[in-house]
């Protein structure tokens, strides 16, 4: 008894210290991630932004200056083209391929999928820069948005197929067999039954494709020659002052505009589909 009463205060102190330490650590981690976001929120409204986050002297001049830049807004539109085109291609082809792979027994199917997944990270990576350029050149796809869309789609498809195949696998085959007995064709089954059931999966893949294209710098930088077709990720690279210094006023403002669409899309899709598997399937 005497021992415990004597030890009790020290235990309590130790607990308190541990708790303080834990929270301090968490605050540091939080600050590490929050400060850049804070900078993104304040710097565009500051008339003399620096690389540190500070209380801005409020102004909207930066936005006006950005509007005067001939390429800034157009580049955002270009990004939308590229992202929408790629997402559409990836979702369509990944859905068809994943459905086929999920339903048809192919020997070595899983090995094929893993192989593709592995190789896909190479396709749009730095390693294949030269051959990709060569390929695009021979196919007359230099300085064409289609070329960028095709190459980005090629890079994203394997992972998209991999993700969607999982969704397809979890829908019971009896739905499709039932539709088949009623005379539905494979494309009708796909449209009426499979797509609605895996819609959350399609949304996931679509968002992921858009986010990927939105942030991709290398492929459009390589393949698009002029600034009038360049997407935002490439244009950001040109926002320098005449002296070669990063133009923080334009850069911060542009960064904000650049990140907003993707963030909004996430909020929208997540509220619409919740990134969960709906459908009430019980087996």
């Amino acid at each position: 008894m005497t021992v415990t009463t004597a030890e009790r205060p020290t235990i309590a102190v130790r607990h308190l210290l541990a708790r303080i330490g834990r929270y301090t650590f968490l605050c540091l981690v939080l600050a590490f991630f929050a400060l850049p976001l804070l900078w993104l929120a304040t710097a565009p409204f500051d008339d003399t932004p620096t690389v540190t986050a500070s209380l801005p002297r409020f102004t909207l001049d930066n936005f006006r200056a950005l509007l005067d830049n001939p390429y800034a807004l157009r580049s955002l539109l270009n990004s939308v083209y590229l992202a929408a085109g790629t997402a559409a291609l990836v979702v369509t082809f990944a859905a068809l391929a994943a459905y086929a792979l999920s339903r048809v027994r192919v020997p070595g199917r899983d090995a094929l999928l893993y192989g593709l997944l592995l190789l896909s990270s190479i396709v749009t990576g730095t390693a294949t820069m030269v051959p990709l350029f060569e390929l695009a050149f021979r196919l007359n796809l230099i300085d064409s948005r289609l070329g960028v869309i095709l190459i980005l789609s090629g890079g994203l498809l394997p992972a998209a197929i991999f993700i969607l195949k999982d969704f397809m696998d979890s829908t019971p085959a009896s739905y499709e067999e039932s539709a088949r007995v009623f005379g539905a064709s494979p494309l009708q089954i796909m449209r009426h039954i499979v797509v609605p059931l895996v819609r959350p999966g399609l949304a996931t893949v679509g968002v992921w494709a858009v986010a990927n294209v939105w942030g991709n710098f290398l492929v459009p930088f390589l393949l698009l020659r002029g600034p009038d077709k360049a997407p935002a990720a490439v244009i950001m690279y040109t926002l320098y002052t005449e002296g070669g210094q990063a133009d923080l006023r334009l850069l911060s403002t542009f960064s904000l505009l650049y990140s907003l669409p993707v963030a909004l899309m996430f909020v929208f899709v997540s509220s619409r589909y919740g990134f969960r598997f709906h459908g009430g399937i019980k087996r």
Partner: peptide, 14 residues
């Protein structure tokens, strides 16, 4: 020209 009722009924949930 046949109709089949499956064991799990296979009603389309959506």
């Amino acid at each position: 020209d046949v109709a089949m009722v499956f064991q799990d009924y296979a009603l389309f949930p959506h």
